[in-house]
Structure formats: structure tokens, C-alpha cells
Amino acid sequence: MTVLGIELSLWSQNEIAIPYPMYFHPSSTTEVFEWQNKIRRQKRRYLFSFVGAPRPHGTKSIRGKIIHQCIASRECQLLDCNKFDCMDPINVIKIFRISIFCLQPPGDSYTRRSTFDSILAGCIPVFFHPGSAYNQYKWYLPKNSTKYAVFIPEQFVLDGKADIENILHGISKERVTAMSHRVIKLIPRIIYADPRSRLDSLEDAFDIAVKKILQNVNKIPREENEGKK
């Protein structure tokens, strides 16, 4: 049995991680293209942003450090979920649409729906643990993670060795532009279209899951014929 879930148990061999469901369910390819074009034209006032709440009781949580760095920077926008409604997609997407980079530290678990909200908004995700995306969504995200995301080891943040603003400023404009284009190109792959319709020339997250599962099923007879378990 193959299990599809929003987060992969890294020790399991029969689980596949699929994107978190969001609030954008287009009913046509045109709607997807219109959204992508809108995001491409978006002017981004902030270098980076963070949407989330601190984890004061988590001894290994880097959220407090991240929030501190964001508050101290004029180029960071913070949406504190203890003070604002982060379940409202308008609040979240509004912040991500005006930010170049979006910080995605682990929360209650390694992954976050916020990662896919940031991609939907054309904001380049910044990860602090490989379990947040790289080891998870292999069917959906590029193998070469540097094409669409930035990685800062969480221990560097905890030890005070990583200045997030300086690290992001050190990325060339050419690379930022290339990463931004790649993120926007990923949008169709991480959304779930309106189930009452189909995207004519695009594959959404559901289409990709079904196609990959069928490919795996088709491998079974061939592997059995080759004498493999």
C-alpha cells in the first residue's frame, strides 16, 4: 500500500509527500496563467518576511531567533500569528506577495503549509532544515534545490552565526531573478484545481500524484519478471 500525505515519515518506504492543500483552486488553465502573470508583475518592497508564531517552550526552535532578526531589520516584514489571523489566506498571501524571500523554519513538524503559500505568491522559500522540503516533495520540487530555494543551517541561526539579512543580500540579482522565475513556474504543480474541472495543458498536484502512482504500479510486473522482490 502506498500512502499519500502532506508530510513524509522519513523512516517509511511506502509514504509519499504531496503539497498541502491551499485556498487557490483554479477552474481553468487561463486562471493559472493570469495568476502567474500577476505575480510576475508584483513589486516586492521587502527583502524577506516571516509568517508564524514563536515557540517559547521549544528549546531547539529557531523561531525566536528569526523573529528577533526580522524585527531588527528594516527589510523584513513580520506577521505574528499570536496577534493576527494567519488562517486568513488574504493576510498571508498579502505579506508573501511583497517579499522576495519567505522564511520557512520548522514548526510543529518539519513541513509547513506556508511553504506552498510562499510559492503560490512567487516568494522564494528559505529553509533551515532539509526535512522541510528537500527530503519530502520529490515528485513536485526540483532535485537541485538551489534553483528555487535558499538553505541556511538551523544550527548556524541558533548559535548566532547566521545573519539572515546579510546572507540574502549576498545572493546576486541574476540568481534571485532566476530563482523567482523558477518558483513561479512551479505554481501549477503545487495547487489542486477545482475538482469539477480540468486544466487543459497543465498538471496540478493531483494529476502528478496519480501519474506517479500508476508509474510505480506498472513497474511491479517488470521487476517481478526480472526476479526482483
Rank of each mutant, 00 (worst) to 15 (best):
R182P: 09
A178Y: 05
Y148N: 02
E165I: 05
F156I: 04
W139V: 02
S180T: 04
F156D: 14
Y192C: 04
H129E: 15
L199V: 01
T177E: 13
R182H: 15
E154I: 08
I167M: 12
E154R: 10
Q136D: 12
N144R: 11
E165W: 06
S132M: 15
L199G: 04
A133S: 15
K147I: 03
R182G: 04
E174H: 08
A162C: 12
K185T: 01
L186D: 00
Y148G: 03
P153D: 10
E174P: 13
Y140D: 08
T177F: 07
S145E: 02
Y192W: 00
I190K: 05
E165V: 06
A149V: 01
H129Y: 15
A193V: 00
T177V: 06
E174G: 09
G160I: 09
P142R: 11
A193D: 01
A133P: 05
R182A: 11
S145P: 02
P195H: 05
H129Q: 13
D200K: 04
P188V: 00
I184Y: 08
N144M: 02
H129I: 14
H181T: 11
S197A: 05
I187D: 00
A133W: 04
A162F: 06
R189G: 04
S132F: 11
L168T: 12
I190V: 13
P130M: 06
Y192P: 05
E154W: 15
S201K: 09
